[in-house]
Design a protein around this nucleic acid. Sequence first.
DNA 1: TAAGCATATAAATACATATTAATATGATTG
DNA 2: CAATCATATTAATATGTATTTATATGCTTA
Lengths: 111, 111
Amino acid sequence: MAQVKSESIMPREDSLQTAAFVAKSLSDENRLRILLCLNQGKKSVSGIVEELSLSQPLVSHHLKELRRSLLVRVERRGPFVYYEIADDRILQILAALKDLAADLLAARTTF
Amino acid sequence: MAQVKSESIMPREDSLQTAAFVAKSLSDENRLRILLCLNQGKKSVSGIVEELSLSQPLVSHHLKELRRSLLVRVERRGPFVYYEIADDRILQILAALKDLAADLLAARTTF
DNA sequence: TAAGCATATAAATACATATTAATATGATTG
DNA sequence: CAATCATATTAATATGTATTTATATGCTTA
């Protein structure tokens, strides 16, 4: 049934610690690009590699990070490994981050 | 009028890059504690130091990081330097991160 | 101006992480 | 089983960063 072992090392105790852990996963531009790319639906690693023009090991590395923080789900089908976003709120948060960052910059730059 | 120079090095071009930059600022538990502590209102550095039981240089370091990402505003009054949260959406995003992280963990742990 | 408090910075250390190049694993098909 | 394709891992490197200790800066007041 195409199960994939997913060693998540997300901290369990403090909720602030887990929030920080998730934020760290969102703190790399390439990971954000991968998440946005997965927004269009489940994709294989090679699909992501092509679409984003990143090297395959780099994409694998970032996907591993996204797995660690539970932001993506994995499913193996044949020789392909498909990734998908684990929760829709992830992209809402990403959108909120983008808006916020844009406004903070605008407020700073305006004068 | 108590202006404080605030060297923000937030990237200006790509909106994804700025989102990642803000996320990085949210990716440290001590910085999140500082933000939550500032939620109760404007506070001096020494106030934060006392409330969180962190060393003064460490708090100063993290406040500098929060300034760089424009998440806090600074105001000097006499010998004190007061910090406050720059935008209310910051705490909304933080709350959303906490909820998300908790649910992701719960979904993973439930079985 | 000297002393004292509040804050920032510097230096040192330890550790994490992004990226690349090379190689290994794992599944499929001839 | 050999070859091939998809993905993961390893090693190496460079860079970033959290923390501590020590010191500097800056404001205020005696």
